[in-house]
């Protein structure tokens, strides 16, 4: 029941891990991605990405700037131009 999540910037691979849920700041609204999400692609706006390691856990926030997210059978990939922290 884990979602494979990858966060990549031009400079490095920031995250590559299995998590419970990720909430992405999409260009047309935030969306949460759980395991088994339908294939989906969206651009993202500047904002906070929230990672829930397990159900009900406190989220970890990462500030993103520009980029897009892709959900495929292999998991969620977020390509961000710039990541803070």
């Amino acid at each position: 029941m884990a979602l494979h999540f990858e966060l990549v910037t031009p400079a490095r691979l920031v995250r590559s891990e299995d998590v419970y849920m990720v909430v992405v700041p999409g260009a047309e609204g935030e969306f949460g991605v759980l395991e088994g999400h339908a294939p989906f692609m969206s651009t993202i706006r500047d904002g906070a990405l929230r990672i829930y390691r397990s159900e009900g856990a406190a989220p970890e926030e990462i500030q993103l700037q520009g980029g897009f997210a892709e959900v495929a059978a292999t998991g969620l990939t977020v390509l961000a131009e710039h990541v803070e922290g």
Binding site: G26, A27, E28, A38, P39, F40, M41, S42, T43, F68, A72, A73
Partner: peptide
């Protein structure tokens, strides 16, 4: 995956 990918906004904009 064979599934239809949804786009938001649509393909051209992305």
């Amino acid at each position: 995956d064979g599934a239809v990918v949804e786009y938001e906004p649509e393909e051209e904009a992305i």
